[in-house]
């Protein structure tokens, strides 16, 4: 960091290194290819009729893998301090709290799923008819 001026000079890197057009491509390029492969897999799974409506769960599982790859390599979590991983993790854990306790309500409501949600249209018309 023995730099007297800021402009025009970026550290004491070898000149050749500074002039080269691209930084080392690995591992980012490999990860990128893996992400593309996973994208294609996800599309195939989505159209795979044997899974029916549950295909979305498989797609989300693939998305989780892709997200992990993006975080680790594209967002450099690999070389980040532990506290940064903790920050990201806190976001995910609190998301789980939000999902979990909210669903704890919806999944335990009386009757079939969604039954508590029916707008009381018929009940109203009955009441009106009774009047």
């Amino acid at each position: 960091m023995s730099r007297a001026t800021q402009h025009g000079r970026d550290g004491n890197r070898p000149a050749a290194d500074r002039r080269s057009l691209l930084p080392p491509l690995m591992p980012e390029l490999g990860v990128f290819l893996a992400l593309f492969a996973l994208t294609a897999t996800s599309v195939l799974v989505a159209f795979w009729s044997a899974l029916g409506g549950l295909a979305i769960l498989a797609c989300l599982a693939i998305a989780l893998v892709m997200a992990a790859l993006v975080m680790t390599f594209f967002m450099h979590l690999r070389s980040a301090m532990a506290v940064m991983m903790l920050a990201g993790l806190a976001g995910v854990v609190w998301l789980a709290i939000l999902f979990g306790l909210t669903m704890a309500d919806y999944l335990t409501r009386p009757g079939d799923l969604g039954a508590s949600m029916q707008t009381p249209v018929k009940a109203e018309t009955k009441a009106e008819a009774a009047n």
Binding site: D10, D17, R18, S20, L22, P23, P24, F32, F36, F74
Partner: peptide, 26 residues
């Protein structure tokens, strides 16, 4: 669009890497 974003994710990650090495053109 997914493919576009993933590609831009790659270029952004490489840009960060290049910046760490002080490669201004790149």
């Amino acid at each position: 669009n997914t493919a576009l974003l993933l590609t831009s994710g790659l270029t952004a990650a490489l840009a960060v890497k290049a910046a760490g090495a002080g490669m201004r053109r790149s």
